[in-house]
Design a protein around this nucleic acid. Sequence first.
DNA 1: CGGTACGTTGAGTCATATCAACCATAGTGG
DNA 2: CCACTATGGTTGATATGACTCAACGTACCG
Lengths: 236, 236
Amino acid sequence: MKQKEIQIPFCNNCAVNTNSVFKHLSSDEIEIINFEKDFKQYKRGDVLYSEGSRISGFFCINKGIIKVFKTGIDGKEQIIRFARPGDIIAYRSVLSNEPACTSAKAIEDAGVCFIPAHILTDFVKENSMFSMEVMKLTCHELGEANEYITDIAQKTVRERLAEVLLNLINDFGLDSDNYLRITLTREELANIVGTATESVIRLLSEFKSDKLIELSGRKIKILNRKSLEKISNVFS
Amino acid sequence: MKQKEIQIPFCNNCAVNTNSVFKHLSSDEIEIINFEKDFKQYKRGDVLYSEGSRISGFFCINKGIIKVFKTGIDGKEQIIRFARPGDIIAYRSVLSNEPACTSAKAIEDAGVCFIPAHILTDFVKENSMFSMEVMKLTCHELGEANEYITDIAQKTVRERLAEVLLNLINDFGLDSDNYLRITLTREELANIVGTATESVIRLLSEFKSDKLIELSGRKIKILNRKSLEKISNVFS
DNA sequence: CGGTACGTTGAGTCATATCAACCATAGTGG
DNA sequence: CCACTATGGTTGATATGACTCAACGTACCG
């Protein structure tokens, strides 16, 4: 059987380039990344890096979806965020020079570039536009994390599940049939919401009886966004 | 009655300087901050800034303790972190050019310098050492936020309260009598842990019966740190 | 001497976790 | 081709942690 050709993306015409944190790099700088990067493909479930490890660089997602999570009590995962094409992950660990505080795993087959740490630190020092972009990114993530803390601390599981669905709609969108463009296991949903798998199952079927969503396997069809917003208490 | 003299701290010999994010600034740069900053005193309960507002600069704590919090459902506060002398707050909003995502209030009488936004952005652009320090600070906070999310999502209130006490010990220390060097209302404790005031009260008196702590008003005396660690599940 | 904010305790309720059983599906190896 | 196993999904029963509500005590302050 003929091996499928692997397309290594070129940074200079990488689709993710235009709106990413790299948007203010010169073409020379892009070329440096292109030369030094290492492209790799991952299958669903493959691990990119693990909590506690020292990482010698950071990752830029070219294709697929990656979940970034922490491992808590009894090995239960808490999903912190998802990374999509154009997103970078593990940069926090590089910049703060600490071991990774999260792990990352592919939830869809993915193509990912690995970029050596020195490129990030060098460019941050040399290119203040880039530096500001990275800063903005970090600050934005920090803002979201603070939001998340407040939500988990104050909202019910039901409210949070509705909110998570809305966030997923925002981040991944719906296809022409109103199906969510990301498929997660019930356990993964639970690990975002911060609850038990069974609770997610029960609440999803409640939402289904209330005609807010439809379920077919892991695919979730959104029927009534307005009501989800009401449930999630997003404006309060 | 004679007005008490206000001591405006000089940045160049400010005690908080040596180990702060400013440590790599030149004396010229420090002088600029010293010239442009605005010193102000706050009493317990005074607000430094409020969620949603645009802030034209950031704050550097000289004296006292500030709580940084978000306002959630029904106006319930979720305390995100505390700022002590040497810490800077509201810099996130300046760097990401977003409205403040938190509020800040003095929980002890405090002295605080306000530093215009352009100083932060200018120095970040011009001084890569400083830029890296700010980056490290942000990344560190992000790491802590992620930790917090996992804790709140997975631990019981009891575990979290024990952990909060340990964190307070770490951050503020104990006096010679083993009393915690920060005094909070029960409600404030609840707003860190993410629970109801009554729950904190009950658990504290449980800890007291178990000889882990002693209570006299708002002062908390730590009797058995090891057991608190065991309860909090910090190593799991 | 009220007034206000904080602290405490009890009782009742409810949301959510836990435990257990069972089904569906897909992949594996003999 | 058929057990065999693993993984994920579902449902029900039960337990309980934590919240809410309410009453009351306490302390400080003008």
